[in-house]
Design a protein around this nucleic acid. Structure first.
Lengths: 188, 188
DNA sequence: TTAAACTTTCAGAAATTACTGAAACTTCAG
DNA sequence: CTGAAGTTTCAGTAATTTCTGAAAGTTTAA
């Protein structure tokens, strides 16, 4: 398993990107390699292509499984396990967002809610709690929207997104239909 | 400068979060501290509150400036510089997205485009280029949408977001208005 | 059962990233 | 100017994260 120069630069670049997106360089490289390979690969092939140890491949695979990003396949007459990316690229992006939400955003929301419950002891704490509430609301809003995005059919959503107008036109249409209720959101 | 227990757990938590969002623990802590403080703080106060060295504070401040996340203020009769967070929380989130786009997504798009330009040498490369194109299109779509989001008035957008319906209703409304053109998107 | 073929685990080593603190630099009042 | 009050830089050190490879574990064909 030798990578072609194109695949190689793709894989190395996505190793670096991966490390900014929640998994380490090697994990990013393994996933990138699987995505651009037209066939499933076994652990030895992966290790050989990326020049990393067998143990490291195994850990990387495990990590990708915890993100639900890969499929495992058995080829008849071969005892090795073969790996391939699960779902489309779009589904992959969704899954990464979703997983990070669970791992990072949810615990933050819990913390912020708990800190709200504590009575403030002085003005400084009142101010701090106000800011924490702003952050809480922002995170919750983003979470809700992204949850709804994920409930849509990916192919349809993709088409809609590419279709043209973009979100500002969408929102202006929404505006004409959904009139703000009188004084129904005192906060913010 | 001693942090209250509430502020302390908030600050430490956001230090950890920060390290998953593109800056290191200390930078996250400094920003979190400034956000919940009702007054601007100078470098000594920050260092004391977080128990970090003067040099580290300086590096953190510099990093936050490169993300355009803080303001600098001079208090008459005091030669120290005082720092406070710039803009609202929502603007902060926008700025972080925007900055990461510039630093991470744009170079990726460039790479992917360059790899497209190279003629494929065999079937495997044709397959790989196809996948790279999918990733390119996904990133570009996300980029466009987020750019449009940022062009909207933040306050209005926030209100709209909290208003109710959510994106799926918005999209179904859009659907009724914008009919797909006949066969106009052969790709995807 | 057994043993060959494969996968996983994990302690220690290597690589990377972050932090300290002293020295260099800057600014400004007198 | 001068020097006191402040900020920044950066070489060396510390902390953290990642990787290796040998040993332990698992699976399956015979």
């Amino acid at each position: 398993m030798k990578m072609s120069p194109k695949v190689e630069s793709f894989v190395y670049h996505f190793g670096e990107m991966g490390s900014k997106w929640g998994f380490n360089r090697t994990v990013g490289q393994i996933y990138a390699l699987l995505v651009v390979s037209d066939q499933s690969l076994n652990a030895n092939q992966i290790g050989e292509a990326l020049s990393i140890s067998r143990g490291n491949v195994s850990m990387g695979i495990k990590e990708l499984q915890s993100w639900q990003l890969i499929n495992l396949k058995h080829i008849p007459g071969d005892r090795k396990e073969y790996y391939s990316p699960k779902g489309t690229i779009w589904e992959m992006a969704n899954r990464v967002f979703e997983e990070r939400r669970k791992r990072e955003v949810d615990p933050t929301l819990t913390l912020l809610r708990n800190l709200q419950l504590d009575e403030a002891n002085d003005d400084a704490e009142v101010y701090a709690q106000g800011k924490m509430r702003e952050i809480h609301d922002l995170l919750e809003t983003i979470t809700q929207w992204s949850a709804e995005l994920q409930r849509l059919d990916p192919a349809k959503l993709h088409t809609l997104m590419k279709l043209g107008a973009g979100i500002s036109k969408v929102l202006s249409i929404k505006d004409q239909f959904i009139k703000p209720k009188k004084d129904s959101n005192k906060d913010s």
